[in-house]
């Protein structure tokens, strides 16, 4: 053995081993203080939230918070506790199905032809076989699942319209200057929009009832999330703004 490996080979081998060993141990030493360069951070970390209306927005947020916690939440709890889950799911499916025109138009305006076609197909199946959208037989077709929910805000973004400042809308909650008109237009396209001229007719009573059911159905989904953000936040307004803007930017990027 001594004749095969001489002393200098030993030294070289030990040196190279130690070098390799130390490179493995100390390769990340610069990260010990957990500071990463901006390129190594995920890029959205540095996004600046434009909020020139912050002082007004914070007041609206306080009003909304009072409204959500003191009025919406107890009503929603009564709805959830006294309505069977199957009925609540049927309501939810029905209202999601009714929003088909917005999803179709939003896809079409972004030249997403395949998605427009799939949305139409889904609407056709759920409205007929699924009895007015109460059931969702379209779930059985994998290609009809997971179609991204497109809205007019995404259309405006794809046309290059800037996001604009953040706006806290009374009752409706977080929005931006670009998303707010999109929501108003979407409301006009909605099948069950309440037209103030028709309040005296019997039909409008049904429409108002449907609107209430829609709000309850939406709140069942949204309020628990809102409450959990609020509970674990140092500054719930900033948390809500950041969460909304992050979510929107991801939806638009898709």
């Amino acid at each position: 053995m001594k004749t095969l490996i001489n002393h200098s080979h030993y030294k070289k081998f030990i040196l190279s081993t130690m070098l390799l060993f130390s490179s493995g141990i100390f390769a990340d030493n610069f990260n010990l203080d957990y500071e990463f360069s901006e390129e190594e951070n995920w890029s959205d970390d540095t996004a600046v939230n434009s909020d020139p209306l912050e002082s007004i927005n914070r007041l609206v947020y306080q009003f909304n918070d009072f409204f959500y916690i003191r009025i919406f939440d107890p009503i929603t709890n009564v709805y959830v506790n006294h309505t069977p889950k199957s009925v609540r799911n049927s309501f939810k499916n029905f209202f999601v199905n009714l929003k088909y025109p917005i999803r179709f138009i939003s896809n079409a305006f972004q030249a997403k032809i395949k998605e427009s076609y799939y949305e139409s197909l889904k609407f056709g199946i759920n409205s007929t076989v699924g009895i007015l959208g109460i059931n969702t037989p379209s779930d059985k077709f994998s290609f009809l699942n997971g179609i991204p929910d497109e809205d007019l805000g995404q259309v405006f973004a794809s046309w290059g319209i800037p996001e604009g400042p953040f706006i806290m809308v009374p009752i409706l909650g977080p929005s931006t200057l670009r998303d707010l008109p999109a929501r108003i237009i979407a409301r006009e396209i909605n099948f069950i929009d309440v037209n103030s001229d028709n309040w005296d007719t019997v039909e409008s009573e049904w429409i108002a009832l449907l609107n209430t059911a829609e709000i309850l159905s939406m709140n069942e989904e949204i309020l628990p999330r809102y409450k959990s953000v609020r509970k674990a936040s140092i500054d719930p307004y900033t948390a809500l703004r950041s969460a909304y803007l992050q979510q929107r930017s991801q939806e638009i990027a898709k």
């Binding site: 970390d45 939230n49 936040s233 900033t238 703004r241 950041s242 979510q247």
Partner: peptide, 17 residues
Amino acid sequence: IENISIVITYRKQFDAF
């Protein structure tokens, strides 16, 4: 969680705080 980063959301709050 659902496109909302815990790090970004808290960092924005600390910046404001």
